[in-house]
Amino acid sequence: MTDAADNRNYALYETIVINVARLVFLAVFFAAWEYIARNRIVNPLFIGTPSEIGKFLWNGLFVEFSLIKDLYWTLGSTFLAFLIGSVAGIITGLMFITWPWFERFSDPLFSALNALPRIALAPLFLLWFGLGIWSKVALGASLTYFIVLSSAVAGIRSTNADHLTLSRTLGASQGQIFTRVTLPSAVPTIFSGLRLGLIYALLGVIGGEIIAAQHGLGQLLSYLAGSFQISGVFAVLFILAILGTGLIALMSRVEKWLLRWQ
């Protein structure tokens, strides 16, 4: 009893110490950064200053809302890219499983497209879909698509043979087998593909925005870098890191709920 309480106290104590240590480390790190930049030990043109970064974030997020607007564009494009890419990926995966000849027929084409560095398609997408969000959505979706496709195929193939035999002896219809056996078996594998697909959708969108865009964090990043506003660049990178972490955390929450049986 007291042992357990001791252990719990100890664990709590440990978390507090670790968090305090982290804060101290960050404070020292930023103070050193500020000191180095202010005293021009390293030119602040290359590394910015933490106080400027803070000011930029404060302005962009709470005063002029410019960062919020760009965040909104980027998030919207990422969401669309993820949605289109993953739905198309899952549907193609289902087609591959339903018609094996289709998979065999299109395999070389898909392999070649998948091997192609997708960023190279950006100029083409810009030409086709214009400077607005759709060229970014296309780029993000093209990345998500292949990741989700291969995970969907792998997931559906991983269905336990015993489960299928049992369903056959029960007289299950094709539709019942699909919704009650194949699909739930595939969910864990599909989900790991979706999680990766979301990160790649963000990558594609940011990449597209850096190359050419009117809005979005990527566009802001390339503008700030081009005009030597290094503190602003760091501020955007900070936002992107938070954004990526947030998206992963969201996916993990959904996954945890869907796969609560695991």
Binding site: N160, D162, T165, L166, R168, T169, L170, G171, V187
Partner: peptide, 27 residues
């Protein structure tokens, strides 16, 4: 296969991991 007057039980339990015991029993 699939006649309703025949029930088949395999050596392995063959339960569906995503269904609860009750849901598996009525599967």
């Amino acid at each position: 296969a699939g006649r309703h007057d025949v029930a088949y039980m395999l050596a392995r339990d063959c339960l569906f991991p995503w269904l609860t015991a009750a849901q598996n029993a009525e599967f």
